[in-house]
């Protein structure tokens, strides 16, 4: 098995089988950011704590990309997912082929392989449309 490395440290976590993104929360003004910041973009406070965004959001917007990217074959789907707290997260959407993607539909966070290199797999996060129940297959510890 190849070495698994996260695309970035400290962005996501698997807690008892439930994937969550890790943002930051300002202890002073309460602003929440993802990716996490070590100081607050809203008020400049350095009093920051981790904030678990959870693994569920709704689709804010999306597109199917019909040309390949450095690590991805075409077509692939990308989107903005809005979390209940209001934060927008950009990520790929997988398992989109079987579903008609629609703004406002429920989305579920999945932690898994983004791409493979010669000696390692890069692990990151993406989303499945929530109606899809096959989302357990790709879950891994980050």
């Amino acid at each position: 098995m190849k070495l698994q490395i996260p695309i970035r440290e400290g962005l996501f976590k698997d807690i008892d089988g439930e994937a969550t993104l890790i943002g930051s929360k300002c202890k002073s003004c309460g602003a929440i950011f993802f990716p996490p910041k070590n100081f607050c973009l809203n008020c400049s406070s350095k009093e920051i704590e981790p904030f678990f965004l959870g693994g569920k959001g709704v689709l804010y917007s999306f597109t199917i990309v019909h040309m390949p990217a450095e690590h991805y074959e075409a077509p692939y789907a990308i989107g903005w997912i809005q979390f209940p707290i209001g934060v927008l997260v950009f990520a790929q959407i997988k398992n989109w082929e079987q579903t008609e993607l629609k703004i406002g539909m429920g989305m579920k966070l999945v932690i898994g392989k983004l791409w493979e290199e010669e000696e390692r797999e890069v692990i990151g996060y993406f989303f499945y449309p929530e109606e899809d129940n096959s989302s357990q297959s790709n879950l891994k510890e980050s």
């Binding site: 990308i78 950009f90 990151g124």
Partner: peptide
Amino acid sequence: PPAKGDLAGELGMNMVGRWAMAQRR
């Protein structure tokens, strides 16, 4: 694509995709 090392770029973002999502919205 965005500049090298850009997180969104590594996740599959590109200039047309960015505006396609804005257009859909």
